[in-house]
């Protein structure tokens, strides 16, 4: 599904190398998790993959279903099937959540040469998806993320994911700022989207999210590289002993 090879990235402004050769392949139907200490480059990886400005790829590639996405515009990557659930979802005053989602769904369809979704079909679908995430009609009407609580913002991210049906989902610290109940709700939303044709990359500091979204593969990232890869037990090891042991082991 997603294949990242030898990815080197630096911050444009500071001329600082953040990713120093990331290799990672996420297969369709699998959930990969990336864990790592602060500053290891986890969020940079998610931003670079989604096409945010300010990063320069100096080496390497990222291929989504045969297409190198690194030269694409963010909207082209989205239409190709990539989705990033933001760590800090952005508030957009004046743009209704519903309008935003309908514009996004139809823009992606148009980009893929598909027919736009009718207003009635869209409404039916969004009501159904919103209900599962306990998102009420008021939240759909309000401006995007404006005045939403931390949990509401994250649920709204998952709603967007459910509506856009991407092939490759990246979740950037989706558990940050969530209490246990909110985390469960978000995890349920994610689990509902798991299927054989979809890949997930879950970026997190803590093991607790992985109790709810069970990964197939766990990677440890440190200083801009994947330093260790293993099964779900690797996450438990981090939970138990912190990153110190692993980092010492690979150093």
């Amino acid at each position: 599904m997603l294949s990242i090879k030898n990815l080197h990235v630096k911050l444009e402004e500071e001329d600082k190398q953040i990713l120093k050769g990331v290799d990672l392949t996420v297969e369709a139907g699998k959930v990969h998790a990336i864990m790592g200490p602060n500053g290891s480059g986890k969020s940079t990886l998610s931003y670079v993959l989604s096409g945010r400005d300010g990063y320069e790829v100096t080496e390497g590639e990222a291929v989504l279903e045969g297409q190198d996405i690194l030269d694409m515009e963010p909207e082209e990557r989205a239409a190709a099937g990539l989705f990033l659930a933001f760590q800090y979802p952005v508030e957009i005053p004046g743009v209704g959540n519903m309008t935003f989602l309908r514009t996004a769904v139809n823009a992606q369809r148009k980009a893929r040469g598909e027919e736009e979704m009718s207003a009635a079909d869209f409404l039916k679908l969004i009501r159904e998806k919103a209900k599962a995430l306990k998102i009420d009609a008021d939240m759909l009407k309000r401006p995007v993320n404006v005045g939403f609580s931390g949990g509401e913002k994250k649920r709204n991210e998952i709603l967007q994911m459910a509506m856009l049906e991407p092939k490759m989902c990246i979740l950037d610290e989706t558990d940050s700022g969530l209490d246990v109940d909110a985390m469960k709700l978000v995890a349920e939303g994610v689990n509902a989207l798991r299927d054989a044709g979809r890949g997930f990359l879950v970026i997190t500091h803590y093991q607790r999210l992985l109790d709810h979204i069970k990964p197939d593969v766990v990677h440890i990232m440190a200083d801009g590289r994947i330093v260790k890869t293993g099964g779900p037990e690797l996450a438990l090891e981090v939970e138990e002993n912190g990153y110190g042991d692993i980092l010492a082991e690979v150093a």
Binding site: G51, R52, E75, F83, F86, V95, F100, V144
Partner: peptide, 29 residues
């Protein structure tokens, strides 16, 4: 708002259309 623009684009809304959405939101007041 560059963050807002990127957010919209990351959901598949082309840059010019995303700009229009933000323009409309600005003038709506």
């Amino acid at each position: 708002d560059e963050d807002g623009l990127f957010y919209l684009r990351s959901r598949g809304v082309p840059e010019d259309k995303a700009t229009d959405l933000l323009v409309l939101a600005f003038l709506a007041e």
